[in-house]
Design a protein around this nucleic acid. Structure first.
Lengths: 238, 238
DNA sequence: ACCTGAACACCGTTCAAGT
DNA sequence: ACCTGAACACCGTTCAAGT
């Protein structure tokens, strides 16, 4: 027993042994504190007080590490809602996804560079698809709508966490005189309008969500009436 | 003059000297043929028959190289249309962006990993913003709508070019039994519905575009009537 | 001004060896 | 079973030297 204490005690920090969980958690911490460029096997090993090669006992690959970190962020998110309005269900689902990612801004670059995603991303997909089917969309349209929602959400999060590209930020470009009112009038006007008030990412996300849901609602209602009409036609034929 | 010919003649391929343009074009070719992992200074230099360090005479940085390659893909795209329907203008604009990117699938990863974007990214922004203003949106809403359209388009292209993540592809997951109808009924149904017909990325993109435009149209019309109403109210007060 | 060659400070990962 | 240490095959980039 003394042997056991001694064995655990001589490890760097704490008395815990190296486990996959500990590796992934330290990786996420490193990502949060120092960004994705610091998330490499050597620095991670150093933070765990261990040799780089020790990590390979708990992680098969760097890509496995990245997938594991992504899973850590996304696995325990609650995507469900108790509303019976399909639009509110979808709102809650993608808001939850966005909030989880914004809590660990570096995770977006991890997801973008990972070769595979944790399979738990099927959970928001399931919820969204179910809600969309309940709205009256057919399977194929529902999947297209899901792609639309997911693409927008991930794109938006990517933009938010990376910050606007220096060369693509209207405000920055206007400061450097690249965005003259002569060649880019609409963009220059947008900069002018945004100059005073702070840009609100939450509001931009909600705007996007509402716009998509309005469009999907239009689509679902059109689908419903065309179905009803064809039913009436059939009935009158009888 | 013979000296000049000799000087040019002893270069690896062709008689052209190394220029920034030639470096960027070869980089794009390398990207197209072998993907982003092969797009590095050493391999690029080898393809140009030159030492890695020779590239730094025409490119300040690897990030400068990436930005240059992105510019090559995006600079000469024509985003405009001759329609006077703002929705058609926006369709043409983002279709053009998508087509340009799909012509060089690797470019998406380049854009994602680049620290800066070519400033010609303002051209589609300008066209989209102008169309949205003409639709009746105020500056801030127009910019939010632009972000929505751009996020969706880039997200969609990213999904298309990377191919679905092995762990996030419903069809693949269902094949491996990760997507049982018991736990993920809606997703399993989607796979079933998509099993026979091929998934049509173009149709999915058009679906997304139409949905967003329908939502924006709703928004613009609501804005217009609320404005008209307040004007009437004011008039009746007079 | 443009290019070369050697070198440096990094990466992920293999391999043989220790306990 | 788990970890170490040295090594390999890569990266981007600096620096001194050549023309």
């Amino acid at each position: 027993m003394a042997k056991k204490i001694g064995k655990l005690g001589h490890r760097g920090r704490g008395s815990s042994a190296l486990t996959r969980q500990r590796v992934l958690e330290e990786a996420l911490g490193l990502l949060d504190r120092e960004g994705i460029t610091s998330l490499n096997m050597r620095q991670l090993a150093a933070h765990l007080g261990v040799t780089p090669m020790a990590l390979y006992n708990h992680v098969s690959d760097k890509d496995d590490l990245l997938r594991g970190v992504a899973a850590l962020v996304v696995d325990n998110v609650s995507y469900g809602s108790d509303s019976d309005d399909w639009r509110e269900e979808i709102r809650t689902c993608f808001r939850a996804l966005r909030n989880a990612c914004l809590a660990h801004p570096g995770i977006v670059r991890v997801v973008e560079s990972a070769k595979a995603l944790p399979s738990s991303i099927f959970r928001p997909m399931e919820i969204a698809l179910a809600a969309l089917r309940r709205a009256g969309l057919e399977a194929e349209d529902a999947f297209r709508a899901y792609c639309l929602l997911m693409s927008f959400t991930m794109g938006q999060i990517s933009y938010e966490t990376r910050g606007p590209y220096p060369a693509a930020d209207p405000a920055e470009a206007s400061r450097q005189g690249q965005l003259s009112a002569a060649t880019f009038p609409a963009s220059a006007a947008a900069v002018l309008a945004m100059a005073d008030r702070d840009w609100d990412n939450d509001a931009a996300f909600e705007f996007g969500l509402s716009t998509i849901l309005a469009g999907l609602n239009n689509f679902a209602r059109a689908k419903a009436t065309s179905k009803r009409r064809s039913r009436t036609t059939r009935a009158s034929k009888d």
